[in-house]
Design a protein around this nucleic acid. Structure first.
Lengths: 111, 111
DNA sequence: ATCGACTGTCGACGGCGATCGAACAGTACG
DNA sequence: CGTACTGTTCGATCGCCGTCGACAGTCGAT
């Protein structure tokens, strides 16, 4: 079926810390992840606006891909939209405390 | 005195999450930080060997600078050597749980 | 069924960063 | 002083990453 949906999402055992950190290191992606942490789930464009990102949809599409391939995001196709969610359980299993830390860090240390 | 030693080390209030994550995202730097977490403190060359990094001294010097400017390392000059330590208290204050997470993540998720 | 509005993807380009080797500077020890 | 060691700086190379404009599915309305 979806060599698309499954191949693009790395298995839990394939997650790697450097890749996760690199994905989170970009300000736009970090903002998106933190916003998604508050929203729970969101389609791409909606998240793009909710995170106040001043970038085009094409750029955001690229970021979404990077986050997905790092194992941070799960993408579910609903009609014409792709609904994004955080892979909380997988991330917590591999990197205990990391996601919580990234999500709860005060805004003044993120700017 | 040390406009060198103090200016190069950002104040706690100036630490920024994206910069810290970017510094930790590089495999060589990540390995160095994790090794330093076990050693407590170490001079550059000693850490370079302890971390099994297959890179030259000049490259490591660059990484050390990146980690220092991100606020992750503290550098103390002792004679001819520079002794490196993690800025644990500052990092814990700004990004609770982050350093612990990075240091305690299982090796198999770091490779 | 087709038009239009919306969704997200793809190819290309530009710039940053990791790396190296060589030259340099500071320190310790004879 | 001269040798050995520690780490930095510089210039160059090269691959990767963020960005954009043009393109392609999908849905609702007419």
């Amino acid at each position: 079926m979806d060599a698309e949906t499954s191949g693009a999402h790395p298995a839990r055992a394939d997650l790697r810390l450097p890749k996760v950190l690199a994905a989170l290191a970009d300000p736009a992606r970090l903002s998106a992840v933190r916003t998604l942490g508050r929203l729970g789930e969101s389609p791409c464009t909606e998240l793009l606006h909710a995170a106040n990102l001043d970038i085009g949809r094409s750029t955001f599409s690229h970021h979404q891909k990077v986050l997905r391939e790092a194992g941070i995001l799960h993408v579910e196709i609903r009609g014409a939209q792709r609904v994004l969610t955080l892979r909380r359980t997988d991330l917590d299993a591999c990197f205990p405390g990391l996601l919580d830390s990234v999500l709860t860090t005060a805004d003044r240390y993120v700017a």
